[in-house]
Write a protein that binds this DNA or RNA. Sequence first.
DNA 1: CGTCAGGTTGAGTTATATCAAATTAAGTGG
DNA 2: CCACTTAATTTGATATAACTCAACCTGACG
Lengths: 248, 248
Amino acid sequence: MPMQDMHLVHHECGDCPIRHRAVCARCEADELQRLEQIKYYRTYQAGQTLIWSGDRMDFVASVVSGIATLTQTMEDGRRQMVGLLLPSDFVGRPGRSTAAYDVTATTDLVMCCFRKKPFEELMVSTPHIGQRLLEMTLDELDAAREWMLLLGRKTAREKIASLLAIIARRDASLRVKAAKGALVFDLPLTREEMADYLGLTLETVSRQMSALKRDGVILLDGKRHVTIPDLDRLLEEAGDDSDGGVLD
Amino acid sequence: MPMQDMHLVHHECGDCPIRHRAVCARCEADELQRLEQIKYYRTYQAGQTLIWSGDRMDFVASVVSGIATLTQTMEDGRRQMVGLLLPSDFVGRPGRSTAAYDVTATTDLVMCCFRKKPFEELMVSTPHIGQRLLEMTLDELDAAREWMLLLGRKTAREKIASLLAIIARRDASLRVKAAKGALVFDLPLTREEMADYLGLTLETVSRQMSALKRDGVILLDGKRHVTIPDLDRLLEEAGDDSDGGVLD
DNA sequence: CGTCAGGTTGAGTTATATCAAATTAAGTGG
DNA sequence: CCACTTAATTTGATATAACTCAACCTGACG
């Protein structure tokens, strides 16, 4: 029975799992206190669309836990994912009143929301928020440009390998301790969502997943549980520059 | 004889053609004065690559006049354009020491450069710069996401029509007075550059240009001079939502 | 055990890429 | 001003990666 769950969790910001990565990362104690006053939590169920493109948006938010997607849809139904939101990622645009994309929860999701008006006022009075938001936006822009290379120039196999590498890398960065050896994770996306991410059809995604499995690049246990025996091999298949793309 | 031209133009910021759109747009007189002290102009010739991916970057800059591109290249030579920089657009990333993309002048180009270190210091002391940069970066992110839809889901014909619409729109916005009726402009890109923008081959670009011409969607005078007799028709061909995509 | 969403696999089609040749445009130096 | 060169572009013929349509699995859940 999917319906909007308004369950009001309430953390102290000090204990917050995304305290040091989210838009509030640079805030001092007093700044955090002001943010506390305008924040509230919302939870959504997997599959739920929280925001439709064109909707009025009266809040901005950080993903606390779970995964959400940004997608664009053409009139005839063609869909392209344009953002994959993980814990600590920011949703919404200060200074804009309507949503530009559909936002959908792909897993159960907890968001830390800020009423937009007061948030915008805080941005003026609290430079640390704007500074952090700029940094995050620049990171997203870099990610978007990497994604553009993928969409425009990579083969289906390279696209799949790239996506798996992105998820593996991110998954590793969320763990406390970097696991050595084989990487193991659960795909947070269906084949169709992967296709929407990659600009492919779900059939092509399925075929290429099978091919990568057949060739030993990945191991599959069920449809979602993935093991990467050799990350370098995967990165080679992804067509990325051999180095990890380390910047600065 | 293409070589770096260090010709030192020197404008007053007050007269600058991009004064009200660039990263300095929100600056007050005193803030502008501090910017003046760390700025210098550089000019480049059409075709010249100003920055190679991985290069050390000791400055950031605004495009004053001309057009530049950001591109990514894979080891085997596949190229994808990931940014098209017009007058007032910003180049470089505060807080990062090396360039992430190749930057190439597609026309003769004038840049207003700021030494990076002092610019970063100014960003801390002068919130108006950071605020404006955030706004510009959010705009670029939106443009990148629109571009992702194009790369992932549009047909070759739609891609070409979309690019022509983008250039036409932008060209119109740079003119003082909006021309009614037919839009006319010169393509600032070669067929190959268009292909790199759109994730196509140059042959496909050429064929689709011919097709749009044959179908009366565009008129061509020479290879570069384009007339759009009916913008709505072009937008229809581009597969975009009928409304102009007006956001806030 | 039946149902249903998610996923896989197969056969045939098609849009775009690739390879190749011809055409146009813009110099450039005699 | 005229050959000659060269880069950009167009056009043609063919190949192929990915799409489409369709059937068939698989596993979770009532």
